[in-house]
Design a protein around this nucleic acid. Structure first.
Lengths: 197, 197
DNA sequence: CCTACCGATCGGTAGG
DNA sequence: CCTACCGATCGGTAGG
């Protein structure tokens, strides 16, 4: 029975709260109830811990996007579902999502370049979907890659300030960002067709 | 003739590139051509350096907002001008803008709480302007404060990935974000009236 | 999973 | 603006 998931969970939270460089192995050890040297029976290094967190995050994000798009054949609906999935990710995996956008400079090469590449591939998935909407004439987007960056930046912001006890509920935010993405793309058909998918 | 502006400029750049906690006074000293102890003839502490950078940044941002809004009496035009000013800020003061959004956890209390408060006041300025648009019936925004956060998050993203040599010019980005903000607010009148202000 | 310990580096001070 | 130096802390290892 390995305790490495527990250690990783503690690390994500501490990286989220204080930043990678501002939190020490001693801090992580305290949270899981060990001495710092004991951690090394379960993990390789602090850097590897960060790497695992970040690559797992982008992997989950990409998988979420694909399964959201697979839920419909209508481009508009796919865009909305993808935006909702991204919102869900930034709420339910908030610490991981935040670390992923903010700790890229803390990642050592070659991992940093690899992660940037994977993040870019994620944005390109968005751009492709948008381009399909443009081709079908239901979306207006002179610069699909730029607006893809915009949508991702916009929703990523949520991980910075979201609080479960805040004034907007999870459901309201998911609905909000889904609609907002469509407004940004100046979609023709904006009304959700409930129970229709 | 004080060299402290030079030191601050070096610090902003290094904080931007590596993060506050990952860069040392030795790094800053090297850039300005001193030894680390010599820096302390011009600055108080590393923490004070960060504090000055961040409060100056939010001060500039707020002033930019106010002078943008003062340029027109039309709400739609004011919203566009404010979005353009924010875009300009994230391009021309990119390092400072990036540090401002990312190094909040590195700021020690009570400065951190004060900065968060000032950032919130900035977003509230946006929300008030949006509310005025709603009152006039030219803007659709069920949650003015939420959409204000969204616009700020969206444009702040620019400071993370903008490159002067990239595929979108400064002018194109300013125009783009100005229009995009209006789309997010579902504005009635979208066409710019040139030479009209 | 611990104690004991490593070399390196940190922000900052003393004193000139 | 420098040399010399401070205590504290860092990530990580040895050895059990």
């Amino acid at each position: 029975m390995s305790r490495s998931p527990e250690i990783q969970a503690a690390a994500v939270r501490l990286f989220y709260e204080h930043g990678y460089n501002a939190c020490s192995m001693k801090d992580i050890a305290r949270v899981v109830g060990m001495t710092p040297p004991s951690l090394y029976n379960y993990i390789d290094s602090k850097q590897k811990l960060l790497r695992d967190i970040m690559f797992e995050g982008i992997g989950l994000l990409t998988a979420d996007f694909d399964s959201a798009v697979a839920k419909s054949d209508d481009v508009i609906e796919q865009l909305r579902l993808a935006a909702e999935a991204l919102t869900w990710h930034n709420i339910h995996r908030q610490t991981q999502a935040y670390v992923n956008t903010v700790e890229i400079p803390s990642l050592e090469e070659p991992a940093r370049s690899q992660l940037i590449q994977r993040r870019r591939a994620y944005v390109r998935r968005w751009a492709s979907l948008i381009e399909r909407g443009v081709a079908e004439g239901v979306v207006t987007a002179p610069e699909p890659m730029l607006i893809a960056f915009n949508i991702v930046d916009l929703i990523a912001g949520l991980a910075r300030w979201y609080q479960p006890t805040g004034r907007w509920s999870e459901d309201a935010l998911i609905e909000h960002y889904g609609q907002l993405a469509l407004h940004m793309l100046q979609c023709r058909q904006l009304v959700r067709q409930h129970g229709n998918i």
